[in-house]
């Protein structure tokens, strides 16, 4: 059997595939962050907590109301988006004119409150959520055993990411959004309701986090701390991709998932650090990120 760097090619391909799965989560989460930062100039530290809230909502829906996975995939992001809208209207809108730091501190505080709330309600060990029946089992791809659910994760997040990119970069609505970011007063003068657009953008950005949360629920243990474990990596992804760059965050998310997957084969001890090493190098060479524009 042929080998790559002493690793059987089958195992190698398997690890690449897994890297892609993780990359999908990174991409979906960092996309939400990028949209929010790009449009609102808010560094949304509550993103991880809202991702956790998405998973929690899916669990609550199933256990209290008998709402299955598919409806959760629609309803939980809507719920999280609604929470986002409330946060934006009641708190964030006062901060747009201030330094980034204020938004960061506010959302960080919100993240701690949300996590504390769920920790108090459900403890830290987490809650089980089983894989929907349609996805039980696995595909035998010849080179690896790919659980059907993981394949679905890749597909679903790619579709959502590309659709978001398309809406923002290629449609009229997206053009309004970009205009509102560039020059809010002028855009408003053209009769476009900028505060409404900003509110919906934040709602949409965090709904993406909720969506990733529901996607993650069957694959990972739902726990109040699941967001804080992931959010730091996701921020690194956004920084590497370029703050606010939509395409950058999608490509970087997937790419870093792959790199991390390979690290897990060759030197597993470094697998949680490799993302940050890349971040440091990118910041040295291209301070605005791989896809970012210098302002």
């Amino acid at each position: 059997m042929s080998e790559i760097f002493g690793i059987p090619i089958q195992a190698f391909m398997g690890q690449l595939m897994l890297g892609l799965v993780n990359g999908s989560f990174y991409a979906t989460l960092s996309l939400g962050l990028a949209v929010i930062f790009g449009m609102l100039n808010i560094i949304n530290f509550a993103h991880g907590a809202l991702y956790m809230a998405g998973a929690m909502l899916a669990w609550m829906g199933l256990n209290y109301f008998g709402i299955g996975y598919w409806w959760s995939l629609l309803l939980a992001p809507l719920g999280v988006g609604a929470v986002g809208v409330i946060i934006e209207r009641s708190m964030l809108k006062w901060l747009y004119k201030l330094d980034h730091l204020y938004g960061l501190l506010l959302t960080f505080g919100l993240a701690l409150i949300l996590e504390g709330l769920f920790r108090d309600l459900y403890g830290v060990s987490g809650l089980p959520y089983s894989i929907p029946e349609e996805f039980a089992g696995a595909y035998n791809l010849g080179f690896m055993f790919l659980p059907k659910y993981r394949a679905w994760v890749i597909l679903a997040s790619l579709v959502v990411c590309l659709a978001t990119w398309f809406v923002i970069e290629k449609t009229r609505l997206g053009a309004y959004l970009r205009a509102a970011t560039e020059n809010p007063r002028l855009t408003q003068a053209f009769g476009i309701n900028v505060p409404l657009m900003v509110m919906l953008t934040y709602g949409f950005g965090v709904a993406l986090a909720g969506f990733a949360g529901v996607l993650a629920a069957p694959a990972m243990q739902i726990s109040p701390l699941m967001g804080s474990n992931l959010i730091i990596v996701v921020f690194a992804v956004v920084v590497i991709g370029g703050m606010g760059s939509i395409l950058g965050s999608i490509v970087t998310g997937l790419g870093l998932g792959l790199i991390e997957g390979l690290t897990k084969v060759f030197y597993p001890e470094a697998s949680s650090t490799v993302v940050f090493i890349i971040m440091a190098i990118v910041l040295l060479v291209r301070p605005a990120g791989l896809f970012g524009r210098e302002k």
């Binding site: 890297g19 799965v21 699941m226 474990n229 597993p268 001890e269 697998s271 949680s272």
Partner: peptide, 16 residues
């Protein structure tokens, strides 16, 4: 296989 503390995903290690 040695994994970092609080690793978010274990599928790769389990494949090994």
């Amino acid at each position: 296989v040695r994994h970092p503390l609080n690793a978010s995903d274990f599928s790769s290690f389990l494949l090994q």
